[in-house]
Amino acid sequence: MNLAKTFSKGIINENPLFRLMLGMCPALAITTSVENGIGMGMAFTAVLLASNVVVSLLRRIIPESIRIPCFIVVIASFVTITEMVMHAYAPALFESLGIFIPLIVVNCIILGRAEAFASKNGLVPSVMDALGMGLGYTLALVTVSAVREVLGAGTFLGIPIIGLIDNPALVMILPPGGFIALGCILALLNKMQQKKAQSN
C-alpha cells in the first residue's frame, strides 16, 4: 500500500467515527462547540501519533505475549503528557474537555491502530496512518460539533449567526442533541452511500 493511500484511508474510507464506529463517547460528549471538537481532535491526534511512533519503533523489542499491556502503558503515558501540557497551556480547553482527556486512553481507536497497524509496519507508514486517522477523527468531531453548535447555540466557533442566534434549538447542545446529531449524520451518510451503490 502506498503512503498516500495509508494517509487518506483514515479520512474517508476508514473514518474512525463515521465508518468504524469507534470513539463514540467523546464524539457525543464534548461536541457541544466546534472549539471543543478541534481541541479534542488535536489532543487525540497527538496521542495517536506519539503512540504509533513508539510502538512502531519498539515493535521488534516488545515481547509478543505482553504487547497489549506495553501498548497501554505507552498510550497512557502520552495521554498523561497531553493532559499536563493542556492543563498548563490551554486551561480553558482543559476545563471544558474535562474527564474525556484521560479517557483518550480507553479510546479503542488508539489501541486498535497500535495493534493492527503500528506493530506491523515501519515508522513512516505508521506516522502517515496516525496522521490520516487523526485528521479523519478530527474532521468527524468538527462535523458533529458544527451541527450541534450552529443549531443549538446559534453560533459557529463562538461567532453569532444572524437569524439563528435569537432562537437556538437548545436541545442540540444538551445530551440528547449529541445522539440526535450523530444519528442523523450517520443516516445521511448511509443514504449517500445507497445512492452511490444504486447508480453504479
Binding site: C70, V73, V74, A76, M84
Partner: peptide, 20 residues
C-alpha cells in the same frame, strides 16, 4: 520487561510534570 517499560514511562512523566 513490563516493569522497565513502566519505569521509563514513570520517569518521563515525572520529568514532564516537573516542567508543567
Amino acid at each position: 520487561f513490563l516493569l522497565i517499560v513502566a519505569g521509563i514511562a514513570g520517569l518521563g512523566l515525572g520529568y514532564v510534570n516537573s516542567l508543567t
